[in-house]
């Protein structure tokens, strides 16, 4: 299905501890290959274990049964979380600089990263002085500044108004095209996934397993509101329990 080389993921089981101490299975048989330099999205019913998957792939959670590509550990990774997760006591520029590996040309990299996301001139602000949209941009600037091999996005545009979200999606696509990183995005929003992705991984209800990997066959320059919606509707018709419009 995915002919290109990629990062292999095979999480056989993952359980959380329930309120009464008994294990609650979250993931059962989650296997896919994350193609390099492609934009892949993960969609599934809410609470199905998408964020847990991200935590495993980013190395934050190691208590699972299965195997993930060793290159996940070696790769330089970046994450844009649901919340921007900026250090509130550091300025925007300092927040970006802190993520950079030691020895990098910090000042220049920071300035470039902020310019990339249209935050030039706001580097001296504290995160509390930014709007949510600006804070999300700052988080994206930080993510791209580290020149990641893999970028993970956890519902990065949630709770933004549609026009700001649309701006940021376009920005993300531009940066992705420029830096050619491998992207894995978790989202609830099917249209967003269709608009941005090369592939969409569909997850089942909890415990999560891969139901299908769909290739978005729309050419990138033809992805307007209409074609995106049509593709999403077809997807929803095929997988009514997973894809909600």
């Amino acid at each position: 299905m995915l002919e290109r080389d990629g990062y292999r993921v095979d999480i056989r089981t993952k359980a959380h501890r329930g309120a009464d101490g008994s294990p609650v299975p979250v993931i059962e048989g989650l296997a896919f290959t994350l193609p390099e330099r492609a934009f892949t999205s993960v969609i599934g019913p809410s609470g199905c274990g998408k964020t847990t998957t991200l935590r495993i792939l980013t190395g934050l959670d190691t208590a699972y049964d299965g195997a993930i590509d060793a290159r996940f550990g070696d790769a330089r990774i970046a994450v844009a979380f649901q919340e921007p997760r900026l250090l509130p006591w550091r300025t925007v520029a300092q927040n970006v600089a802190l993520a950079l590996p030691p020895g990098a040309e910090r000042a220049a990299r920071v300035a470039e990263a902020l310019a990339d996301v249209g935050l030039d001139g706001l580097g001296e602000r504290y995160p509390s002085q930014l709007s949510l949209g600006q804070a999300r941009r700052a988080a994206l600037a930080r993510a791209f500044a580290v020149r990641p091999d893999i970028l993970f996005l956890d519902e990065p545009f949630v709770s933004l108004d549609e026009s700001s979200a649309q701006h940021l999606r376009q920005l993300l696509l531009n940066l992705w095209a420029r830096y050619r990183v491998t992207i894995l995005m978790v989202t609830h929003n099917v249209r967003e996934a269709v608009q941005l992705s090369d592939h969409i991984i569909l997850l089942s209800q909890r415990p999560a397993r891969v139901v299908d990997v769909v290739e978005v066959t729309l050419a990138r320059n033809e992805r307007d509101a209409e074609s995106t919606t049509r593709f999403s509707q077809e997807l929803a018709a095929l997988y009514p329990t997973i894809v909600a419009l």
């Binding site: 980013t58 190395g59 934050l60 990774i77 970046a78 994450v79 979380f81 997760r85 250090l87 802190l98 993520a99 930080r142 580290v146």
Partner: peptide, 8 residues
């Protein structure tokens, strides 16, 4: 924030 710091 601790998670963010570990990632980066």
């Amino acid at each position: 924030l601790t998670e963010m710091a570990r990632i980066y």
